[in-house]
Design a protein around this nucleic acid. Structure first.
Lengths: 133, 133
DNA sequence: GTAAAGGCTGTAGTGACTATAGGGTCAACA
DNA sequence: TGTTGACCCTATAGTCACTACAGCCTTTAC
């Protein structure tokens, strides 16, 4: 059940140094050690690290990821606070979803126009153009 | 029509120093200058910068953003290359869309359960848990 | 004409990793 | 039993993508 830091890194696509870095800054708890002083991880750390990595991949800062994790960690906190944080993050997620959807449409356009041999109608920049003023 | 670096920053939500940084590393072209040596930007730079910022916000590296911009810039390049790059980015976009959709569902869950007064069923970590093995 | 706002270059600091040095642990195989 | 190789440990320095001064110049508004 318990795995080494290398296993955890392979499973989550994270460099070993990055995992130790997350521990140093307090984003991951310090795990128990083996007799040989090796870190020993369980399923909870795997879930937590996976969440951190994918949150980062979606463009959230470590502080934002920390806030999201706190939604799950501190269930006894003031519900109004949690609600406000969740709402703010939801807004940001909706915005990112809209941008990604637009980008997907343009990438599909590039791919299909490439198939035809010409790519004269590439509007990829316009997909993420200036927001409405 | 032409705007200052400060205007451009305000419109795109970018710090002035960041714009100058993008110019220094060659991501934005060096714009013409006024008599007083001020940078003078037009609509093309606005579109390009907006794309860069939103691409970054979606978790793409500057190199990835550069590659996406190149899809639009170098239309005379080999179409097969462009197609391959676009396909790779499309895959990544689809993955991010799936993650964001899962995160949105969990955030909505937090918000609605907060409304009820209890937040015992928070599965926000599970939304971005380890990928299928 | 002068004060405030905003632009200029250059350099140094921050957040989030990433790489390297120098050494210890462990499983496997001769 | 010894030793080889893969992997772990700490500590520190380097990189990427900004961000924040310092010190000075230009423009706008009174």
């Amino acid at each position: 059940m318990a795995v080494t830091i290398g296993d955890l890194g392979r499973t989550t696509g994270t460099k070993v140094e990055t995992i130790r870095y997350y521990e140093r800054i307090g984003l991951l708890p310090a795990p128990p050690r083996t007799d040989g002083n090796y870190r020993s991880y369980g399923a909870a750390e795997l879930a937590r690290l996976s969440f951190i990595r994918r949150g980062r991949d979606l463009g959230f800062s470590l502080d934002q990821v920390r806030a999201l994790l706190a939604l799950s960690d501190d269930r006894q906190d003031d519900c109004a606070d949690i609600d406000a944080i969740a709402r703010r993050h939801l807004e940001e997620v909706e915005r990112k979803l809209a941008d990604l959807t637009a980008l997907r449409r343009e990438l599909k356009g590039v791919i299909s126009s490439c198939k035809g041999g010409a790519i004269s109608d590439c509007r990829i920049i316009e997909a993420l153009g200036p927001r409405a003023v």
